[in-house]
Design a binder for these strands. Structure first.
Length: 134
DNA sequence: GCTGAGCGG
């Protein structure tokens, strides 16, 4: 009879029916549609980056040309004209990464709207908003 | 490698 006693004691734990559990949680947390997102702190929704998206490039502009043009405003850590992997031709945009945010901001201010290989190059609004006011 | 908005590796 010791075995019977053990069996009954382990089976003693009981779970409430799903319907009751759902009702309980809706009573304790307000409603099934949990609204309470009490997050009053949201200072950096999008973090500024030293990496700039550069569009409007001439399809003849190369990674070197891009780096040269942007190097006047700071230390260019990484520059790349995006090319199609199969054809190898420029897609007309690229990326420039500076060492610091200050240089990145200077790079935007210095290069936005400037000509490079006959094309007016433009920075993304995202990057400008994030960098030009810091 | 023309094309002309877009966010690669």
């Amino acid at each position: 009879m010791a075995m019977r006693a053990a069996a009954t004691s382990t089976a003693a734990s009981f779970v409430a029916p799903r319907g009751l559990r759902a009702l309980y949680s809706s009573l304790t947390s307000g409603f099934p549609f949990n609204p309470p997102q009490t997050q009053t702190e949201k200072p950096p929704p999008a973090e500024p980056s030293t990496n700039l998206f550069v569009s409007g490039l001439s399809k003849r502009t190369t990674t070197e040309g891009l780096r040269d043009a942007f190097a006047k405003f700071g230390e260019v850590v990484h520059a790349k004209v995006v090319t199609d992997r199969v054809s190898g031709f420029s897609k007309g945009y690229g990326f420039v990464r500076y060492a610091t945010l200050e240089e990145a901001a200077a790079g935007i201010k210095g290069m936005d709207g400037q000509f490079l290989d006959g094309w007016v190059i433009l920075q993304s609004m995202r990057d400008q908003d994030l960098l030009l006011h810091l």
